[in-house]
Amino acid sequence: MARGRGRDHDVVRQAIIDAAGTAVEQGGLESLTFRRVAAAADVSPGRVQHYFTDRARLVQACFDAVQDRARSRVEATLAKVEPSPAEVVAAILRTMIPRSPEDFRDLRVVTMFETLALTEPALGRALLEGHAELRMLLVDQVALVLRSSGSALEAAGITSSEMISDGLLATAGGLASEVLHGHLGADEAHRVLDAALACGLGKSTTDDTEAGHDA
């Protein structure tokens, strides 16, 4: 654990990153200025620039923090499920659909960053790398499902784990967007995802999350 000056450095840096995320969520990307972030973090604009020499570095740090929280949610979810490939796939995809206030906050911020990534190459690469990491994890697990005995998909001649993973990722991402914009409640979206998983994996999976969490 960092002590003294090092600990203060980490605390201030994290406060700035948190303030940047809040600024983006509440006011959009145009609110991500050193002056506004400094005010929210209760530091001087010069202090923000000390840690992040330009806006691009602050954007990247904020995005990385959101991605780290997403990975932590996936890891925490996987620790609670049966170690079967189908349940692992289902658990990963369910974390994409927001339930808690923090889930919604992070998804709003990521959605704005996805737009910015169209014109910011470094951020675009980070998004692609994160997606590729998630996709590869799913592809590996779906391949295990396809190789399992009695797989209805294999019997039907559907053997591309990449194609199935891409379809499930697109479904979960679309449902997440529907929930974010209020077109679907979280519980309803999870039921739709479970139906897609049953079709996509040829196996039934059950979401044990308690009902009553619709946003």
Rank of each mutant, 00 (worst) to 15 (best):
G173M: 06
Q60E: 14
D207H: 01
L137I: 09
D106S: 09
D18W: 05
V89M: 08
A2D: 12
E30F: 00
A189W: 00
A195C: 00
H183M: 14
A86Y: 02
V12R: 12
G21K: 07
V48D: 06
E87L: 06
R57I: 00
T171L: 08
Q49H: 14
G173W: 05
A65N: 13
H181E: 15
A215H: 08
P101L: 05
G185Y: 01
F63G: 02
D208N: 07
V12P: 03
G202E: 04
A211H: 06
F113R: 07
R3Y: 13
Q67M: 11
A156D: 04
G46F: 05
T209F: 03
V88D: 00
A15P: 00
A117I: 06
E154H: 08
T115H: 03
Q26L: 11
E178A: 14
S165V: 10
L146K: 04
S44F: 01
R125D: 13
Q26C: 06
A152Q: 12
L169Y: 08
A117F: 08
R5P: 05
R13W: 07
R108D: 03
A196G: 13
G185S: 12
A196Y: 12
E154A: 15
H190Q: 13
H131E: 13
R99S: 03
R13F: 07
R73C: 03
A56R: 14
V81D: 02
G4H: 02
L107G: 02
A152H: 11
M136V: 02
A15I: 00
E87M: 06
S148Y: 06
A91C: 01
L128M: 12
S151T: 09
T205M: 12
D166A: 10
T77E: 15
R94F: 04
V145C: 14
A15Q: 13
E114A: 10
Q49M: 13
T206D: 11
A38E: 08
E87I: 03
V74M: 04
V48Y: 08
E133Q: 15
L137C: 01
D166F: 04
T209Q: 10
A39K: 01
E154P: 01
L175W: 08
V24R: 02
L128G: 15
T119L: 10
A155L: 15
K203Q: 15
E87T: 05
P101Y: 03
R105E: 07
K203P: 01
R71I: 02
R105C: 05
D64H: 10
H183D: 15
L123W: 06
Q60N: 09
L180K: 08
D103H: 06
E114I: 03
S161D: 04
Y51E: 07
L138F: 13
L146C: 07
R191H: 13
R94E: 11
G182L: 09
E120H: 12
E178L: 13
G200D: 05
E162T: 14
D140Q: 15
E25F: 01
L78K: 09
P85L: 06
T119S: 15
R105G: 06
R94L: 01
V109L: 00
R125Y: 09
L58K: 05
L175H: 05
V109K: 03
T205Q: 12
V145Y: 03
F104T: 04
V142L: 10
H213Q: 12
Y51G: 00
K80T: 10
R35T: 03
G4D: 11
V24M: 00
T119E: 15
G150V: 07
G28R: 01
R147N: 14
D194G: 07
H50A: 13
Q141Y: 11
